[in-house]
Design a protein around this nucleic acid. Structure first.
Length: 270
DNA sequence: CTATGGACCTGAATGC
DNA sequence: TGCATTCAGGTCCATA
């Protein structure tokens, strides 16, 4: 799935094309993570006013309520002329400007209509999310303070989304590599200097990935169906057993919280 | 409150 | 060829 860069690339591609679109009908496929939360017919006639993002959630502002979308591990959106729905196409939002289709083989994704951001479901999903890494609220002093209160491994704190959102398994590994920090180091053991380095690495890694069009996913394509999103040029992620391009040390894979972590023992020494 | 493991689901790759 | 095992982008939830 998409981490923040893929979601943001999706958002940018979608936003200007779907803005103002009027929903004609809604087709549901197999169940996603949660029920839609409204009868599909209730969405007919509404317009899509804007597409926002919070962490890895996309928020389609409708003329009544908000449609929250999440791509889970394997989800992607397409927008345009839609062919017949396949067995992994679980939501079609048919509009006068094209069909927004959510494709998600594993169905960890979600499509939930919310009356507003105060709704219980909205609060459950969005309250407690950490800072937006590309926003003003992600400042170095706050980052240091937040890490100071955490005893878990820094890699897992990054993945939790409670300090900073949008950093998934790939970019957590990459950011730690560029900051020279061992993934297993407890978060509250990071020096102020290392926190600053990590802060910078996170911003850098995410911005780079967005510029490349969400390069991390083998099977990622943006909603316009553009190809050329296959270049994964990770420094460590998925490269266990290979030589580090910086120092030549063999990259290792370990398991943290049931997820794979990749790191270079030669470069990541803090 | 934090930290941890399990759960959800499908498909691709690997090994015997 | 078939079948079992492992792994994959996320994150909510129960439990300690």
């Amino acid at each position: 799935m998409p981490e923040l860069p893929e979601v943001e690339v999706t958002r940018r591609s979608l936003a200007h094309r779907i803005r103002g679109a009027k929903i004609r009908s809604v087709r549901l496929g197999k169940p996603l993570r949660w029920p839609l939360g409204v009868a599909p017919a209730q969405l007919e006639g509404l317009r899509v006013q804007a597409v926002r993002r919070r962490g890895k959630y996309l928020l389609l502002e409708l003329s009544r309520g908000i449609l929250l979308l999440h791509l889970g591990m394997s989800g992607s959106l397409s927008f345009g002329a839609a062919g017949p729905a396949g067995s992994h196409d679980h939501l079609d939002l048919c509009t006068n400007q094209g069909v927004l289709r959510l494709h998600d083989p594993r169905r960890f994704g979600a499509a939930v209509w919310l009356p507003d951001l105060q709704a219980p479901m909205a609060r459950k999903l969005l309250d407690g999310l950490g800072a937006e890494p590309l926003g003003r609220d992600f400042d170095r002093a706050g980052f240091y303070r937040a890490l100071h209160g955490r005893r878990a491994a820094i890699k897992q704190v990054l993945l939790s989304g409670r300090v900073v959102v949008g950093v998934g398994n790939i970019y957590a590994c990459e950011a730690l590599f560029w900051a020279g920090i061992r993934p297993t180091l407890r978060a509250n053991r990071l020096s102020r200097r290392r926190c600053d380095a990590l802060h910078a690495s996170i911003v850098q890694v995410l911005k780079d990935a967005i510029e490349r069009g969400g390069s991390s996913l083998r099977d990622f394509s943006d909603p316009a169906g553009k190809t050329g999103y296959f270049q994964l040029d990770a420094a460590v992620y998925g490269r266990a057993g290979q030589a580090c391009s910086r120092c030549g040390t063999t990259i290792r894979r370990i398991t943290q919280g049931q997820r794979s972590t990749y790191y270079c023992p030669g470069c990541q020494t803090f």
